[in-house]
Design a protein around this nucleic acid. Structure first.
Length: 827
DNA sequence: CTCTCCCT
């Protein structure tokens, strides 16, 4: 285990003494180091023989399997050893460690597993989080859990967080940790901002920028575009415009051979242009790039807790992503980067990429926590807490899979948690085990977890993929894609100790398995709507007209993009409705029909939102009826109820007081919060309501006034009156602002003759903003200080008014004159 | 009728 640091020249070497020093005394430390500093290989080796480590091990977390393996290999190489001796690695279904191993490189999800087996991580002395700036869900979970372990069980456990660009302040405050900063090894990159692109013109404008850049500069080009579609269009343009260049697309779905061709230096001696998705930002490195062209857009999936579906979104990238992309031009020598956005847009970019936890499916996380005995993930300390909506969706799903009961993990839930996969797939595997369908389920699990091995031209039937996988297995075929999937399927078979099956696939068996993994995605053809389906979660989805599955009456959907109006189905299987019998529920349903604006009550047989049979009910249960009305109000109350001007003023009066006098605790009567809690105030008034007309007729102002405590009602009239009496005798309505801005009193100038100063409200604490109007109700002056107006500006205004309204009275001393409503003739 | 990336 001899290792000579003197022979190595990497920037991170300079900070090693400082890091050692801090770790002597501190439990948690942050290292900020740009890529290329050498931190991932040198630091763990440098820390091996620290006395505080004793004979405990170092764990280092990596976001990707490939990185975990190659970093372990590099470290072993530096020690002159094989992987598995001093340095080993663990990724899912693959472990290379021995009793000698002191440094284990893991992918991030593995740590959570290890923590479950040994909460205290007894033989671990240090956990290193590499590439923490990527903020993957698993890294955030790993940090939260190891912090918990450090605080509760293992005060001697040390944590080292390494990151390239990150919100260091937030991180170091939250972890109460010092930051050590290292230089990078990076050549300067000259950055040029061009004009903003319209997202629809990305391929054309990127192509233009590339064509101009290759004329001005030497070297190969790497361009970042959001996705496959844009890459193909850009490629088409460049093939015509730059015939002497080698053009390489690069994205995840591309076969491995073509990916390699894009990454490796080309032999033909032609200059090269690589058109890539964000895959080249972190996962793949292309050597020899001197020019980066960045469209400024990327694509990512967003989880919608409402439907438990994800959707792909095209978004502007964050500044740290943009910097990382630009840095790709400066790895070997000086470079240049063209950005398709202007300096103003640049100043408005988000600083950091959004942490995955904010927009991910949290089912695994919530099950993990439940296994730890943590009922609410919010109870842990998070860098970014998991969003409430996603947490409650996850809980709901886990309850429906019988993994949780009243928030606690069940025996079935523990069984699911044991399996190294998403709870949905685990649930499917357990069902398969009980129904003798495991061989099929393991093939299916592997296919569901990985990228679709077949292209779009193959349609959406997942059974075609299973058959292709089985053919591959039987014929010992080639093809990297199926090799990868077969490896995972095989790992699952080993787990369950079963043999592979290579015979034909019963599509209905696939269907019922999928229906167990994705019960809310059971789909029933919509009568009369070709290739459209009603999903059990309420959503409508469509499939290509020419697709083999387009005419199936029932589908079990595996993969779907939520879209806005209608989801698009990517993978599914035919389904035999007879198999669904155990999932059919009888339910009395009362719903608000938004189209006709009335309540409908029926006794239904349903699978989620798919109605199999419906019998009308004439006298529905009163409490269900009321609940249905309240649900409708919650969803669409702003339209269903009569929020007229008077109601709005009442709301603004209270909201203003809420701002002005926080110590009085005025209730939040904004429309949104009223609707959320509508049961509390509207219930007594809706027992006769049957339809939209009845709702509209409710006197909302009266109802809301009654909902207020008597004390508040009185105070409201005193502190924020709805009207003010002016000298002319008119009662003028005050226009309050819901944000607490000064309320407006719009009144004709002549009606306030004799009023010396601005009227005050809220016990004399707040003045109104006077909009003084001409006799024709045009604003002639806005003032918060009436006295000053009379003394200064009035005479100017008077001149103008006299000219335009000569028949009216415009006295010289307005504070002493008689106020008038209409025309008062001059004497 | 636009499919990013990654992980137990």
């Amino acid at each position: 285990m001899a290792f000579d640091f003197a022979s190595i020249d990497l920037p991170v070497k300079d900070i090693i003494p400082e890091v050692k020093n801090h770790l002597e005394n501190e439990q948690t430390l942050i290292i900020k180091a740009p890529p290329g500093a050498g931190k991932s290989t040198l630091l763990p080796l440098a820390l091996l023989e620290q006395s505080w480590l004793g004979n405990k091990k170092i764990l280092m977390l990596e976001p990707r399997r490939l990185a975990a393996k190659s970093i372990a290999a590099r470290m072993a190489d530096l020690l002159g050893e094989e992987v598995g001796q001093t340095v080993g690695y663990r990724i899912r279904f693959e472990t290379k460690v021995s009793s000698e191993t002191k440094i284990e490189v893991l992918t991030e999800g593995i740590l959570t597993r290890m923590l479950h087996n040994d909460n205290a991580l007894e033989n671990i002395g240090l956990i290193i989080f590499d590439e923490f700036h990527e903020r993957s869900l698993n890294a955030d979970v790993a940090l939260a859990l190891s912090r918990e372990s450090q605080q509760v069980l293992r005060p001697d456990l040390k944590l080292l967080i390494m990151s390239a660009t990150l919100d260091m302040k937030h991180l170091s405050t939250m972890l109460n940790a010092k930051v050590v900063e290292s230089e990078g090894r990076q050549y300067p990159v000259a950055i040029h901002h061009l004009e903003d692109t319209d997202p629809y013109l990305i391929p054309e404008l990127t192509a233009n920028a590339i064509i101009r850049a290759v004329k001005k500069h030497e070297g190969d080009v790497l361009a970042f575009l959001p996705g496959q579609g844009e890459i193909m269009r850009c490629e088409g343009i460049l093939r015509n415009e730059l015939p002497d260049f080698k053009i390489h697309p690069l994205f995840g779905q591309l076969p491995q051979g073509k990916q390699r061709a894009a990454i490796l230096p080309n032999r033909e001696g032609k200059r090269k242009v690589v058109l890539s998705t964000s895959i080249a930002e972190t996962s793949l490195t292309i050597e020899g790039i001197k020019i980066v062209v960045d469209s400024g857009f990327g694509r990512h999936s967003e989880f919608d807790p409402q439907s438990a579906l994800t959707r792909l979104k095209t978004h502007r990238i964050s500044r740290d992503s943009a910097d990382q992309r630009a840095g790709r031009a400066g790895r070997l020598s000086e470079g240049v980067c063209y950005r398709l956005w202007n300096p103003v847009t640049n100043s408005r970019l988000d600083e950091h990429r959004m942490p995955e936890i904010e927009q991910a499916d949290l089912a695994s996380l919530v099950l993990d926590m439940a296994e730890w005995g943590i009922r609410n993930p919010e109870d842990l300390t998070w860098l970014t807490p998991p969003p409430k909506g996603s947490v409650s969706q996850a809980k709901e799903l886990l309850h429906s899979l019988d993994a949780l009961e009243h928030g606690n993990i069940t025996e079935h839930g523990k069984e699911l948690h044991q399996l190294p996969t998403h709870p949905r797939i685990a649930h499917m595997l357990v069902y398969a085990e009980e129904n003798d369908l495991l061989a099929l389920a393991t093939d299916l699990a592997a296919l569901l977890e990985e990228r679709d091995p077949l292209g779009k031209e193959h349609g959406t039937d997942i059974n075609e993929r299973i058959e292709a996988l089985r053919r591959y297995r039987k014929e010992k075929g080639k093809g990297k894609r199926f090799a990868h999937i077969e490896k995972i399927a095989n790992s699952y078979r080993k787990l369950f100790k079963i043999e592979a099956e290579n015979n034909y696939v019963d599509a209905y068996e696939t269907g019922i398995l999928l229906a167990h993994a994705y019960p809310e995605r059971i789909a029933c053809a919509r009568p009369g709507n070709n290739a459209q389906f009603q999903l059990s979660n309420g959503k409508i989805a469509f499939i290509g007209h020419k697709d083999d599955l387009a005419h199936e009456p029932w589908l079990a959907v595996a993969s779907i993009d939520a879209r806005d109006e209608m989801g698009k189905i990517f993978l599914a299987s035919p389904l035999d409705p007879k198999d669904l019998a155990p999932m059919v529920k009888q339910k009395e349903v009362i719903t608000w029909d938004y189209r006709d604006g009335e309540l409908i009550a029926s006794n239904d047989l349903r699978i989620g939102n798919i109605v199999l049979k419906s019998t009308p009910i004439h006298h529905p249960d009163e409490s269900l009826r009321q609940q249905a009305i309240c649900d409708a109000i919650k969803k669409d109350g702003e339209r269903l109820l009569d929020f007229n001007k008077d109601v709005q003023q009442w709301q603004s009066r209270i909201l203003s007081l809420r701002h002005w006098n926080p110590e009085q605790h005025w209730p939040d009567v904004s429309t949104a919060s009223l609707l959320v809690d509508c049961e509390k105030w509207i219930s007594p008034y809706i027992n006769k309501v049957k339809n939209a007309d009845d709702l509209k007729k409710l006197n909302l102002l009266e109802i809301l006034q009654h909902s207020l405590d008597w004390e508040f009602q009185e105070k409201l009239e005193k502190l924020a009156p709805s009207k003010i009496k002016v000298p002319s005798g008119s009662n003028i309505k005050i226009q309050y602002d819901e944000k607490g801005n000064p309320p407006i009193l719009a009144v004709r100038l002549q009606e306030v003759f004799g009023l010396e100063a601005t009227p005050m409200i809220n016990n004399g604490k707040n003045g109104v903003l006077m909009h003084l109007l001409s006799p024709g109700f045009k604003v002639v002056q806005i003032t918060a200080d009436l006295r000053s107006f009379w003394e200064n500006t009035y005479f100017e205004v008077k001149k103008e008014m006299k000219r335009r309204y000569p028949k009216h009275s415009w006295p010289d001393d307005p504070t002493d004159a008689e106020a008038v409503r209409g025309v008062k003739r001059k004497k």
